[in-house]
């Protein structure tokens, strides 16, 4: 049986990539898992979607996905954003795998910019799309230099940058792609997730894989691994607090999108994780802007990650 006959899309292999490319990516993934937080160079291929639109994540997913997997793809926390739809369709077409929008049902979740609100479980794999994998890139543009700094575990530049933030603004002015230290060794870019999501990376039961296609890097955080957001003793890491619960499902302690309702300052805050929000509404939870709003206290203060 030729490889071309094994995939549902005529002329292309299962999950689009040829087997040699998959092997190359798989070798990089094994190394990435063994050296948590270290960016493994890999011979990223041109993919049929543009660089910067998730080619790294797509290559990682294509290299690991099998016929028995169930795939979920989110962008900004939502399954319905155009790029999430496009990537989900790509794998449904080229690999014929089952897809889902439910976090709990997925074995592989490819994401851009968010970590789902449901706590991920053992056996799940979270694949991040990464635009700029180098956490030091905006402090030092040269690859030859940043590679040396990682080798020497010299992260003084980053400390100075964060400290200058504090001196100037009174707090660290980085709100997303907030750098983390992995397993006490490498400083790593968590991809442009809001720093709200950083704590979810720490000691997660799920395997976290990161793919940067244009920059040709793969890195990983194994399950049960220490992921510490960089901070200072007198300025500990803190996440954003939202003043109101989700206007549709009443969830608290979750990341919210601000939706502008009119041009007179009207706005509402709703869950960024659309699957989480829909599930809660299906369970009867309501928010202030639900048609069947049940009033304060009706939700019993249920929050994310409390199931």
């Amino acid at each position: 049986m030729s490889a071309a006959e094994t995939g549902p899309t005529h002329g292309y292999n299962f999950a689009y990539l040829d087997e040699q490319t998959k092997r190359m990516i798989r070798r990089a993934i094994l190394k990435a898992v063994a050296i948590p937080g270290y960016q493994v160079p890999f011979a990223s291929r041109e993919m049929p979607m543009p660089y910067g639109w998730g080619t790294g994540g797509v290559q990682v997913t294509a290299a690991i996905i099998g016929r028995c997997d169930t795939l979920k793809v989110i962008d900004q926390g939502s399954d319905d954003t155009t790029n999430a739809v496009s990537i989900r369709k790509f794998f449904a077409k080229t690999a014929g795998v089952a897809t889902t929008t439910h976090t709990a049902e997925a074995t592989i979740i490819q994401t851009r910019h968010r970590i789902p609100e449901h706590t991920l479980k053992a056996g799940q794999i979270l694949v991040y799309q990464v635009p700029i994998p180098e956490p030091l890139r905006f402090l030092e543009p040269r690859e030859t230099e940043t590679r040396r700094l990682h080798a020497l575990k010299d992260y003084g530049l980053m400390q100075v940058k964060l400290y200058e933030d504090i001196a100037r603004h009174g707090h660290i002015a980085t709100t997303y792609a907030y750098p983390v230290e992995v397993a006490g060794r490498y400083v790593m870019d968590p991809s442009p997730i809001p720093k709200f999501d950083n704590p979810k990376m720490n000691m997660s039961e799920a395997l976290q894989l990161f793919g940067a296609g244009r920059e040709k890097r793969i890195y990983a955080v194994p399950p049960h691994t220490n992921v510490r957001s960089l901070d200072f003793e007198d300025h500990p890491f803190r996440v954003q607090q939202f003043a109101t619960p989700c206007a549709l499902c009443g969830a608290e302690g979750v990341y919210l999108d601000e939706v502008v309702l009119d041009d007179r300052g009207g706005r509402m805050f709703v869950c960024s994780d659309t699957d989480f929000c829909e599930e809660r509404r299906a369970q009867g939870f309501t928010g202030t802007m639900s048609p069947d709003w049940k009033g304060e206290g009706a939700n019993g203060g249920r929050q994310a990650n409390e199931r």
Binding site: F14, L30, V33, I64, G66
Partner: peptide
């Protein structure tokens, strides 16, 4: 080869992780 190497790789990756 396509299906079996994928399945085995996942076992290897999981063992390493």
């Amino acid at each position: 080869a396509v299906g079996q190497t994928q399945a085995l790789f996942r076992v290897l990756m999981d063992a390493m992780a």
